[in-house]
Design a binder for these strands. Structure first.
Length: 421
RNA sequence: GUGGGCGUAGCGUAGCGGUUAACGCGCCAGGUUGUGGCCCUGGAGAUCGAGGGUUCAAAUCCCUCCGUCCACCCCA
């Protein structure tokens, strides 16, 4: 029996006191995206399930055990999007964006869904901000995306992150590498963990990021992908590195960095906070030169990046980045007697019309109780309407900070408050 | 899917076999003659996660389920 009044497992309510973090991340992210020439795109939160099966990869955990799939009333198999890249690529194809000047630079912000067991840094509904640059394989574009990501965190105020970088080749050189990796592991299977024995069969690349202690020495001595890259991929990677160095973006070469989605080629990167927490990658991305073709269009190179907003916010808190105080209304309109209520309603309305945020006392409480509310609301001024004010067409303006108050003519109230608030 | 910790008022906690379950914060109302923050007084609010069992007696012990947190898997 699931309690009725409880958010579904793995989902959260973002309460008013959390909103400053969300506003900060949202405004920083969208401002930066525009600064780099990216345009906003919004895609549906659900799509034909097969889009993700093809796009993300049949063999991935995301598709095999984490996708929210459902049959709609027309019998179509749909899925809540587990990430944003497949949607954006679908939109690129559907709207013939290959006719636009390439690359097409797009950014998005919105929820994604994965049916996981929740834990620290992992929810079933989470928020992705992402950028995609489609239609160009120039490593300068890789550098642009990485710089955008890096700068995002810097401007947000998280400065102790590390950038992990690797290249996982393309369809030319990856089979060669996988063969080398498997050959290396062949005679060591007896010494690795059971998970790794399974990975050897299903997803050999994942062997490289096993966390089991006993597997670490074997991973450390495994051949790095960068030794097996074909000439084109090696050149691409080398150029990217030279750009990152020119941009003074510090990165760590991590030959063990692999990604869980099938579509990645060549460049892959992750951005992580210093602690070795479990779910610690706050942003990641890479090149996916084969995805558009896999979805049925012409071969089109592309690179993208996405960050988990909830994880970003967790890190803002961890790093103690101060947030601006949430906006509070400027004025609380209180009244003494029932006779003054109508005047109070009108005053509150006029204040708002003048652009002054105002809340009015409701519920017919005592003036004392109204003042308590005014205080709790955190307003700058209380506007009090009593019998005297009513009789003289005035209002008492009380500055909450120090209790100073003055009586002004009703018609001057807006101007007076505007000057002081 | 697997493993571990935890579930007592809105929040944070105490109580850990025995009369009407306690405290802090918060909330509401008062502290006379039109007004907040401090202080004082009073009040509302908990079927002690749910169901079953042990016992004369269970919030307290046992089992099951649910929820939650953390970890694995995997990922943002």
């Amino acid at each position: 029996m699931i309690p009725l009044c409880r958010a579904p497992r793995g989902t959260v309510d973002v309460l008013p006191e959390e909103q400053p973090y969300w506003g900060h991340v949202y405004h920083t992210a969208t401002r930066l995206a525009k600064l780099y020439g990216y345009s906003r795109i919004d895609t549906p939160m659900f799509e034909e399930a097969s889009l993700f099966v093809r796009g993300v990869g049949q063999a991935t955990d995301i598709v095999q055990k984490e996708m929210y799939v459902f049959q709609d009333r027309g019998g179509e198999m749909m899925a809540l999007r587990p990430e944003g890249t497949a949607n954006v690529c679908r939109a690129y194809i559907q709207h013939g964006m290959h006719n636009l000047p390439q690359p097409v630079r797009l950014y998005y912000w919105g929820p994604a869904f994965r049916y996981d067991r929740p834990q620290a840094g992992r929810q079933r509904q989470f928020t992705h901000f992402g950028c995609e640059a489609i239609g160009e394989d120039d490593p300068a574009l890789d550098a642009e995306i990485i710089e955008l990501a890096w700068r995002l965190y810097q401007e947000l105020g998280i400065t102790d992150l590390s950038l992990q970088l690797n290249s996982i080749g393309d369809p030319n050189c990856r089979p060669r590498y996988l063969a080398a990796l498997k050959a290396y592991y062949e005679d060591k299977l007896g010494r690795v963990c059971p998970d790794c024995r399974a990975r050897f069969q299903t997803n050999p690349l994942r062997l490289l990021d096993c966390k089991v202690e006993g597997c670490q020495p074997i991973i450390a001595a495994a051949p790095p992908f960068t030794d097996c890259l074909c000439q084109e991929c090696a050149k691409h990677f080398q150029e990217l590195r030279s750009y990152l160095e020119a941009l003074a973006i510090p990165y760590t070469l991590n030959p063990r960095l692999v990604r869980g989605l099938d579509y990645y080629t060549r460049t892959v990167f992750e951005i992580q906070p210093p602690e070795q927490a479990a779910q610690n990658t706050i942003g990641a991305g890479g090149r996916y030169d084969g995805l558009i073709e896999e979805l049925g269009s012409r071969p089109t190179p592309a690179i993208g990046f996405a960050t988990g907003v909830e994880r970003v916010i967790a890190n803002l808190k961890r790093a103690g980045v101060p947030m601006p105080a949430p906006a509070r209304p400027a004025v609380f309109v209180a009244y003494q007697t029932a006779a003054a209520r109508s005047a109070a309603v009108r005053l509150a309305s006029e204040l708002r019309r003048a652009g002054i945020a105002a809340v009015m006392a409701v519920g017919g409480r005592s003036l004392k109780a109204q003042m308590r509310q005014a205080d709790a609301t955190g307003v700058l001024y209380a506007a009090i309407l009593g019998e005297e004010e009513l009789a003289t067409g005035t209002v008492m303006l009380r500055r909450m900070e120090d209790g100073q108050q003055e009586r002004v003519a009703l018609q001057d109230a807006c101007q007076r408050l505007k000057a002081n608030a």
